[in-house]
Amino acid sequence: HNLTITQGKLFFHYNPKLCLSEIHKMEEVSGTKGRQERNDIALKTNGDQASCENELLKFSYIRTSFDKILLRWEPYWPPDFRDLLGFMLFYKEAPYQNVTEFDGQDACGSNSWTVVDIDPPLRSNDPKSQNHPGWLMRGLKPWTQYAIFVKTLVTFSDERRTYGAKSDIIYVQTDATNPSVPLDPISVSNSSSQIILKWKPPSDPNGNITHYLVFWERQAEDSELFELDYCLKGLKLPSRTWSPPFESEDSQKHNQSEYEDSAGECCSCPKTDSQILKELEESSFRKTFEDYLHNVVFVPRKTSSGTGAEDPRPSRKRRSLGDVGNVTVAVPTVAAFPNTSSTSVPTSPEEHRPFEKVVNKESLVISGLRHFTGYRIELQACNQDTPEERCSVAAYVSARTMPEAKADDIVGPVTHEIFENNVVHLMWQEPKEPNGLIVLYEVSYRRYGDEELHLCVSRKHFALERGCRLRGLSPGNYSVRIRATSLAGNGSWTEPTYFYVTDYLDVPSNIA
């Protein structure tokens, strides 16, 4: 807008934040220059609390790290170098490059900038070799853009010569660093050979998330399962459950009422301010606690030095998902009996873990797994792929695949051998790939016309006998059925096997 004052003059007093240069501009645009008398524009009460600059400061050096910015700028000295009290560095987070010096300023003089007072450097006698002032900004957020400017702080001049310097606002972004852990990993099994893994992005990506790394490792069953005799009275049979499938998407929606109208769909109840505040506090606490764990609990591995020492970490090797089922080394339970199943799973520490690289999504279907087997899954978020990966501390989750139908069934015939004193040795093959492992066998036998009897055969007993022995049988026709019990439950009964026990007292003698 054009402003013209045809008559009258300007009068400025007691404006401590208004620089004289701005008042002189007002004289020019209003056409009143030359009308004012000496005392109409006070030299001592206008701009006496402001830094009124008329020179431009330029930054000469900028260096960044993930949490620091090192700045240096060209030296500046007023005509009387004693008038320079120091520099004021202003900075704040700036997602967009549209910041002005006066953003967030209120009537009390406060604003949204963080201000650092910096002492002037030592003055050199040689004007050509003056030290460049600077400042190291610490405690910054990774991968965050900051708006920065600097200006001088000078003393009051009796001659009211307006001098000083100020830089333009520059924008500097800190470097990326390792992201925080992925949030809320959930693993479920939808079949006997697959596990579905879902997660949420890290709360602090500290860069642009480029991919996720998912490692999985087959877990050995508890050692007590191999040692305890679950045929003993009072000892509860062990059981394991597989990871249940995901709930429906509708039930997972946030901010939804727990109660549904019987007449149909209901609208979600909005969260109160107290609920939102509580969630923010919980989120802040979780982030602080995660940072504490990362800094205190997890110790970084030592990389190899120039002395030739090897990095103890196993090298990563990509495998196809079809090879995942046989990740671990199978060892027989008892070496003397080769027909026992290889369900003991000690994992070799030198073995390469299978892994998958996930790009542009937060889910993965891990296939080719062994049925009813526990897996430990390790999830890392990465925001750099080359020249070397920059990934987060791992988040861990466990899951067990679903049982395989008929995996616990005894394959092959049940054979028998009759000894003296009416002892019958029953023999059968253990299931080759049971659900988890076989903890015991149930032997059901009966003599024709009598009630059915049951015998429990422990895992250890089966390994020693290759089956079991029935003792003290009365003469007669017998039928026997056997079924295995694994961590997933009972298998199917075998087809009945028949044998006849004679009275050993009636056996004919070869003595003449």
Rank of each mutant, 00 (worst) to 15 (best):
P205T: 03
P205D: 00
N206M: 11
N208W: 15
T210P: 14
E217C: 07
E217P: 12
L225S: 08
L225N: 02
E227W: 13
D229Q: 15
Y230H: 02
G234F: 15
G234N: 10
L235W: 14
L235A: 10
L235R: 11
L237H: 02
P238M: 12
P238G: 06
S239I: 07
P244N: 11
F246T: 11
S248H: 02
S248I: 15
E249A: 13
E249K: 14
D250V: 04
Q252C: 09
Q256L: 07
Q256W: 07
E260W: 08
E260H: 08
D261V: 15
S262N: 03
A263E: 05
G264E: 14
G264D: 12
S268I: 15
S268T: 14
C269W: 13
P270W: 12
K271D: 14
K271T: 14
K271F: 13
T272A: 15
Q275H: 09
I276L: 04
K278L: 09
E281A: 09
E282P: 15
S283Y: 10
S284C: 06
R286G: 03
R286L: 07
K287S: 06
T288G: 08
E290W: 04
D291W: 13
Y292H: 07
Y292L: 06
H294N: 04
N295L: 07
V296I: 06
V296N: 14
V296H: 11
V297C: 03
V297K: 08
R301K: 03
T303E: 14
S305A: 12
T307N: 09
G308S: 08
E310H: 03
P312N: 11
R313L: 04
R313A: 14
R316Q: 15
R318A: 13
S320A: 11
S320E: 14
G322W: 13
D323M: 15
V324P: 09
N326F: 06
V327C: 10
V331S: 06
P332Y: 04
T333Q: 03
T333P: 07
F337L: 12
P338C: 09
P338K: 08
P338S: 09
N339A: 10
T340A: 05
S341F: 08
S342D: 04
T343H: 09
S348L: 09
H352C: 02
R353P: 14
P354W: 08
P354A: 05
E356Q: 05
E356V: 13
V358G: 15
N360V: 10
E362V: 12
I366K: 06
S367D: 10
G368K: 04
G368V: 09
H371A: 07
F372P: 00
T373M: 09
T373G: 12
T373R: 03
Y375L: 04
Y375C: 02
Y375W: 15
R376V: 08
I377V: 11
E378H: 13
Q380L: 11
Q380A: 05
A381G: 01
A381Y: 02
A381W: 00
Q384E: 12
E388M: 06
E389R: 11
R390A: 02
R390P: 12
V393H: 09
A395K: 15
A395M: 07
S398C: 10
S398F: 05
S398R: 05
S398K: 12
S398V: 14
A399F: 08
A399P: 07
M402D: 06
A405L: 12
A405F: 11
A405D: 12
D408K: 01
G412N: 11
T415A: 07
H416T: 09
H416N: 13
E420G: 07
N421S: 08
N422C: 04
V423H: 00
V423I: 06
V424M: 03
H425P: 01
H425M: 12
M427R: 06
Q429S: 15
Q429L: 09
P431W: 00
E433R: 10
P434Y: 03
G436N: 02
L437F: 05
I438V: 09
L440T: 12
E442C: 08
V443E: 00
V443Q: 00
S444R: 03
Y445L: 04
R446S: 00
R446W: 03
R447K: 03
G449N: 11
D450K: 09
E452S: 08
E452K: 11
E452R: 12
E452Y: 14
E452G: 10
H454R: 04
L455T: 10
L455R: 05
C456T: 02
V457A: 04
V457G: 01
F462W: 10
A463V: 08
L464T: 07
E465F: 13
G467L: 04
L470T: 02
L470D: 01
L470Q: 01
G472P: 05
S474M: 11
S474R: 09
P475Y: 09
G476R: 00
N477V: 02
Y478D: 00
S479F: 06
R481S: 07
R483S: 07
R483P: 00
R483Y: 02
R483A: 05
A484M: 07
L487E: 09
N490W: 14
G491H: 02
T494P: 01
P496G: 15
P496M: 03
F499Y: 02
Y500V: 12
V501S: 03
V501K: 03
V501I: 08
V501E: 01
D503A: 13
Y504K: 10
L505R: 04
S509I: 15
I511F: 07
